[in-house]
């Protein structure tokens, strides 16, 4: 068997992993930082998706121009919810957080069905992102290459921000030891709002980018929740790098498994997750 097909599959798996990374990194950070379980995370991703669909289809915006807006609107809306609702539950039990956020996810599903209907939303991507070309004998999808570039760029930006900015230092401190960070005078809540907005914005961006690969309809907010939770738990709470590694690993292993052992197709992602969690209950790069 030539190597070409395998590289193609690996490449596609990595691109899929980047999508998972964008969708889940925000949840990992907020969960790690405030112990806040936000099951409505994918609702913000869905919002980003609908922003892009509305702008391209109804107002004729080019696809790429809608992406920053998908990010910003998801981030802004999430801050509104954070201030109105989430904030009150930081000290409440995790079960109350589950109930609140699953309630919001339910509402988002119904609102999306009401506003946009139940139909699959098509998205118009620019022609240079469509189709495929041959790269060193491997057939490469243009859009997947774009996804990988986006994933890597955002990973780089986040790493730079977390490692080299003042905000990043505060964020790391708050994730490591929230009480100590407060004691040192760090505005943990303030840092959290920014991290929350950033995370939801990235989810929004992920939602917009996901349409081309997995489609978009009103059930998105619940349908991808499981995948996002898997990435977060396998990667480790509060770890950006962990989410990146976990998402790439899951994307690639899923593809390889389906290529070589299609009979195991649906089992694979769960088997991998359980194996990793038994080996490292705190996730690949988690500290707790």
């Amino acid at each position: 068997m030539a190597l070409g097909p395998i590289f193609g599959v690996l490449f596609d798996g990595f691109a899929y992993g980047m999508l998972l990374f964008l969708l889940s990194v925000g949840l990992s950070v907020t969960l790690g930082m405030m112990n806040f379980i936000n099951l409505a995370h994918c609702a913000f991703a869905m919002l980003g998706g609908y922003v892009t669909v509305t702008l391209t289809n109804r107002f004729g915006w080019p696809f790429l121009a809608t992406l920053p807006l998908a990010f910003c609107i998801a981030a802004l809306v999430s801050v509104v919810f954070e201030r109105l609702l989430y904030r009150r539950l930081y000290r409440a039990g995790e079960l109350d957080q589950v109930l609140l956020t699953i309630g919001l996810a339910f509402m988002s599903v119904a609102v999306a069905a009401y506003v946009f209907g139940t139909v699959q939303q098509p998205v118009e991507t620019p022609s240079f992102l469509r189709g495929s070309f041959s790269l060193l004998g491997v057939s490469v999808g243009a859009y997947r290459l774009f996804l990988i570039a986006m994933g890597l760029a955002i990973m780089l930006l986040l790493t730079l921000m977390v490692e080299y900015t003042r905000f990043g230092a505060q964020l790391r401190a708050a994730v490591d030891n929230q009480r100590m960070a407060r004691g040192l005078g760090i505005n943990v809540e303030g840092a959290f709002i920014i991290a929350f907005a950033l995370g939801s914005g990235l989810a929004g961006l992920g939602g917009a980018l996901a349409i081309e690969i997995v489609g978009l309809d009103h059930s998105f907010a619940l349908a991808y929740l499981i995948y996002v939770l898997i990435v977060v738990s396998v990667g480790g709470l509060g770890s950006i790098g962990g989410s990146f590694v976990a998402a790439s690993f899951l994307g690639i292993s899923d593809m390889l498994g389906k290529y070589y052992l299609p009979e195991l197709g649906a089992f694979l992602i769960y088997l991998v997750m359980i194996a990793i969690l038994i080996w490292r209950p705190a996730g690949l790069l988690g500290r707790r």
Binding site: L99, L100, L104, A105, F106, M107, A110, A113
Partner: peptide
């Protein structure tokens, strides 16, 4: 109806 169930939970 999901909307109303969600609202109830919230």
């Amino acid at each position: 109806w999901y909307f109303w169930i969600g609202l109830l939970l919230v």
